[in-house]
Design a protein around this nucleic acid. Structure first.
Length: 489
RNA sequence: GGUCUCGUGGCCGAGUGGCUUAGGCAUCGGUCUGCAAAACCGAGUACAGCGGUUCGAAUCCGCUCGAGACCUCCA
């Protein structure tokens, strides 16, 4: 890219609550960790939104010339321990339900997840480490936390000692929670709780009778706490402190708060300079979630099997739709909104074809560099894809006017605009234009049919020409008469 | 209950003190067309309510109403 376009990237940091100039720890390199899915079921559209948003971040960082190491974990251990100290093994539960081994469950849904990544055109992360592949690393971190006096062992389990931690660090700095307030708000505690303090959380949980996954540890058989895997894997692949940590907004507390505590407790260093949180996908104004049951699967929109939508939508359209809202805003997914995006996306696509074939002139009648700069400015302002798209549509208008011979563009500007637009659409937004004419044999047939219709039209035989047009319409093919020729889709 | 966020024109959705008519879709008008569709061009409408700060607020402050998130697993 042209370095004059680079300018400064600003990112909203959840830790400070402000947009900050992005300066990577190591020049030209970025380390980014994003909390991935727990694969006890098929990821739903809301899950995908987060991953699509961070895919955008990844893509733009690459586009900006950074060498990015992008780590997105896969949680394949259902080691969930809630604040009441009760263990809830989501993967184990799914395994019992489907009569499979836990890792079979994970394998099955990971295959789906990887397919979805392809369908929605997500770039593969640099590494996708799994929790179960890093048990040893998790144990080592826990040992360090104990050694530093921020955790204690109780009956074969290990808990993070929040009170002790608070003497040296600010627990709650990310989520803005005050522990003394928390105490009053927390719902009733389990009476026989092993924890010393209500806010303590499990780093290692002693094995229970019907656990389906168990690992050995210095504290006996058991499994790791929910938060520790991210600390272990981000440290291993990105170091004790790295540039960006991302995840869904619903992970901010307690998950990310506890990650910070674990890292500080183990190494004395905060894990990430910048915390980014992607907002939720809503259905009828409510957060899409598995527990509410108001979710739909990415596949269902694409193949049209969802009862919420009357027809299938291409994954590219869905991606485009998501790019039209900012990652920090909630987004309501409705059929009406999706239809609007579908049309807009088509218009963008048509205009790119127009630009490719646009006639060139001696000079350009409008400022191309300024237009292109606006693409960069939008993305440099906390990855503002909706603004980028608005600016792309400004270009669309210009392109159409060139086509109408009301604006002109010279050879150099045309090449520049074409390559930058392609780059932003394909490489940054991750949108591919569909090849709609699926069947090779249909093309020649359509050529013939349209020729017959044209012959009829030349003879002013409107009955025949309209018969063909209506017949094709019934077959789902739309005839588009242009000035010079006739197209179809 | 506690903490926090949000409320923008018919719909989706940017914008945080003074030209953004943001943008997309829809609507209306026009061009094109045998007619129509498509395509293109052009136009309109908004900032939940009330009060305050300010020369000036959608944008800051307060209150009211409404919606949502987190505090329990969640992207």
């Amino acid at each position: 890219m042209n370095s004059s376009n680079k300018k400064q990237l600003f990112i909203f940091n959840s830790l400070s609550g402000k947009k900050e100039a992005f300066v990577p720890i190591h020049k030209d390199k970025v380390g980014m960790y994003v909390c991935g899915p727990t694969l006890y079921s098929e990821p739903h559209m809301g899950n995908m939104r987060t991953f699509i948003n961070f895919d955008l971040v990844y893509r733009y960082l690459i586009h900006s010339g950074y060498q990015v190491k992008y780590v997105r974990n896969i949680t394949d251990a259902g080691h969930i321990t809630n604040s009441a100290g009760e263990q809830e093994d989501s993967i184990g539960n799914a395994a019992r339900l489907e009569q499979l081994q836990p890792l079979e469950i994970v394998y099955k849904y990971n295959l789906r997840f990887q397919e979805l990544n392809k369908i929605y055109n997500l770039l593969p992360p640099s590494v996708e480490p799994t929790a179960t592949g890093h048990i040893q690393e998790q144990i080592e971190i826990i040992e360090n936390i104990i050694k530093n006096g921020f955790a204690y062992v109780k009956n074969g389990s290990v808990y993070f000692d929040v009170k002790s931690y608070m003497k040296s660090y600010n627990y709650g700095e990310l989520s803005g929670r005050k522990v003394d307030e928390l105490e009053n708000e927390t719902r009733e505690l389990n009476a026989q709780d092993e924890k010393r303090f209500f806010a303590d959380f499990a780093l290692w949980k002693k094995a229970q009778k019907n656990d389906m996954q168990i690992w050995r540890s210095p504290w006996g058989d058991g499994n790791p706490g929910w938060h520790i895997e991210c600390t272990a894997m981000s440290t291993k692949y990105l170091g004790e402190t790295f540039d960006i940590h991302g995840g869904g907004l619903d992970l901010k507390f307690p998950h990310h708060e506890d990650e910070i505590a674990q890292s500080c407790g183990a190494s004395g260093k905060s894990p990430a300079n910048i915390w980014m949180h992607a907002n939720m996908l809503n259905v009828n104004g409510k957060k899409m979630s598995k527990s509410l049951g108001n979710f739909f699967l990415p596949q269902e929109i694409v193949d049209g099997s969802s009862t919420l939508f009357s027809k299938p939508y291409s994954p590219q359209v869905i991606r485009f739709f998501m790019m039209q809202s900012h990652y920090r805003s909630t987004l309501d997914l409705t059929e009406e909104a999706l239809n609007a995006s579908e049309k807009g996306f088509e218009r963008l696509q048509l205009s790119m074809e127009l630009l490719e074939n646009a006639p060139v002139s001696e000079s350009s009648s409008f400022g191309i560099p300024l237009l292109i700069q606006s693409f960069y400015d939008a993305m440099n302002d906390d990855f503002n894809a909706p603004i980028l798209i608005a600016n792309l549509f400004d270009a669309v208008k210009k392109i159409n006017l060139i086509h109408d011979k009301k604006e002109t563009i010279n050879t150099g500007d045309k090449a520049f605009l074409l390559s930058e637009m392609k780059s932003f659409i394909h490489d940054v937004l991750g949108l591919n234009f569909g090849l709609s004419k699926a069947d090779d044999r249909l093309g020649p047939v359509m050529d013939l049919v349209l020729e017959l219709r044209q012959n009829a039209r030349d003879k002013k035989d409107w009955d025949t020409s309209d018969l063909i047009r209506d017949g094709l319409k019934n077959a789902g093919i739309e005839v588009k008469d242009g000035k010079e020729n006739t197209n179809w889709k």
